[in-house]
Nucleic acid binder design. Structure first.
Length: 491
RNA sequence: CGGGGUGUAGCGUAGCCCGGUUAUCGCGCCUCGUUUGGGACGAGGAGGUCGCAAGUUCGAAUCUUGCCACCCCGACCA
């Protein structure tokens, strides 16, 4: 690899992703296995994601709260399926103190300081939250509880990738409590809709909404709703999940409420989350061989201005114009950076901002100043044009909107073009081996068939699409009246 | 956690098989000057526990063992 650029997607998609994340300054590996350092530029994108989602959660009536990182080990085991799902990947705190080692070479765990009850670092917070909700809920008047928390969680993963799967990751987890099943199901579906809207409208990533098969369901859920996205290499990525938890956690933690008639009932629950994995989806959906491509709505810098000059006077003149332009752009809520760093040449800056995915670049040189123009370059399609300085701010605003739309149009087309239907296992394997993608096929609903298909094709059922009533013959068994599902090889 | 690979300056690397002066080169970094419309050029300079630990040896980047990290492929997963 040269110190410039990154490997091509067509050569090694996985390597391309890794290099891009590092070179675009999004994140790097920490010294602790499986953990990542999210760098300021990467974190700025995450903050944009977070801020927008937070607005949307609040618009739908939710409030933020914070529950502890450490959870008593015993809580996890209260819900059988839940402990089954998470026990194998929990970090455990066993001691609360260190002391100097006797040979003076460092510190050791103080064996005297063993915890009576070991604590686990949350892999998710259902247990501690439901243990708390028990205290919060007595009557139907206490319901619904609509709470979200922004937090970090730890799942001890065997194989990690920056953003896509790390041992510690950032996410939000919504946890709601309801008096009726209908209301809880509605909440689950509502939040799935919020996710779908956010991902499509802000990330410009098209998704398929559906529910998971039993195998793929969240540990402890009655039903897991999800949005599934398709990456450029033809692999699927689960972008968000929303779970209808039924009364499982209410029963496990004995959370009941008195209804209007005074009858005691168990509370109905939901939980839903998206994580820093969305960053991975963002990268793998839009970016190209020159680096990151960001949708304007999530770009920390939407417009970069690069001056081109031969002497101080020219720079001064360009700066003067640039500063007045910046003022106008700020009033239009466009984030802009004027890069007048004299140590870097324009060509270097061009490449750098392309790597970082800045949607629009303006280059201004003496020639432009003379003609009252600027050179405008779009990151998404790499087009360049010379445009008038007159009414430039509005043009930029329009172009940013255009880019946002074009990205979504393009990724939607990709999704459409890479969604196939298959009538036989052989055909499915053939398609998957050739180009990946989503495969629509019929499935008899049996877990055993699902496992068998996975064994044969390495593809899993990504989801059973919502509002899909079509039936046909099962791709494995040929059974009639099987339901239509989406298969793919997945991250 | 299994199989394979890699680890040498901030980054990328040569040297390792076959042990022997002061560890190679490029990029980046610092200073000065010239430059600036697609990753500039010259001169000078700084920068190294050769992943970590132990062992073999007169002598280890090089050989042996263990450990760690990362990458690829499996199993598991958001």
């Amino acid at each position: 690899m040269s110190s410039k650029g990154i490997v091509k997607r067509s050569e090694d998609f996985s390597k391309w992703y890794n290099e891009l994340v590092l070179k675009a300054d999004l994140a790097e590996h920490s010294d602790v296995r499986g953990c990542m350092i999210i760098k300021p530029y990467g974190y700025a994108i995450w903050e944009k994601i977070k801020d927008q989602l937070d607005i949307m959660f609040k618009e739908t009536g939710h409030q933020n709260a914070y529950f502890p990182l450490l959870i008593p080990k015993s809580y996890l085991s209260k819900e059988a399926a839940h402990v089954e799902g998470f026990a194998k990947e929990c970090a455990v705190v066993t001691h609360y103190r260190l002391k100097n080692s006797e040979d003076g070479t460092g510190v050791i765990v103080d064996p005297e300081a063993k915890l009576e009850e070991e604590l686990i670092i949350r892999p998710t917070s259902e247990t501690i939250i439901w243990n708390t909700y028990k205290k919060w809920i007595q009557s139907y008047r206490d319901l619904p509880i609509l709470v979200n928390q922004w937090a970090n969680v730890v799942r001890w993963e065997m194989r990690t990738r920056l953003f896509l799967r790390t041992s510690e990751f950032l996410w939000q987890e919504g946890h709601t409590a309801h008096a009726t099943k209908i209301e809880a199901v509605e909440e689950t579906e509502k939040m799935l809709e919020v996710y779908a809207q956010f991902v499509q409208e802000f990330m410009a990533v098209p998704v398929i909404k559906g529910v998971k098969s039993e195998n793929e369901r969240f540990a402890g859920a009655e039903e897991t709703y999800c949005i599934e996205a398709l990456m450029q290499d033809g692999k699927a990525l689960q972008a968000g999940t929303s779970h209808f938890l039924g009364q499982n956690f209410a029963k496990a933690f004995d959370v009941t409420f008195a209804d209007k008639e005074g009858n005691k009932n168990h509370v109905w629950a939901t939980s839903w989350g998206v994580s820093t994995r969305l960053m991975g989806a963002l990268v793998m959906t839009h970016s190209d061989d020159k680096g990151l491509v960001l949708p304007p709505k999530l770009a920390p810098i939407q417009v970069v201005i690069v001056p081109i000059y031969k002497n101080e006077d020219q720079l001064l003149e360009i700066s003067e114009y640039a500063n007045s332009l910046i003022k106008e752009l700020k009033s239009l809520n466009i984030s802009v950076k004027f890069d007048n760093d004299d140590n870097k040449k324009p060509g270097w800056k061009f490449a750098e901002y392309e790597m970082k995915g800045v949607p629009l670049r303006i280059a201004i040189g003496p020639r432009d100043m003379e003609n009252q123009t600027v050179e405008l370059a779009r990151r998404d399609n790499l087009s360049k044009s010379t445009v008038s300085q007159l009414d430039l701010p509005n043009l930029l605003l329009e172009t940013l909107n255009l880019i946002q739309n074009d990205l979504f149009t393009r990724s939607s087309l990709f999704l459409k073009e890479n969604t196939y239907s298959a009538n036989s296992i052989d055909q499915m394997i053939e398609i998957l081996d050739a180009k990946g993608g989503f495969i629509e096929a019929f499935w008899n609903g049996d877990s055993k068939s699902e496992h068998k298909i996975k064994e044969l094709t390495k593809a899993t059922i990504r989801c059973i699409p919502l509002n899909e009533n079509q039936t046909g013959n099962c791709i494995l068994t040929g059974e009639p009246n099987s339901k239509k599902v989406i298969f793919a090889r997945a991250y």
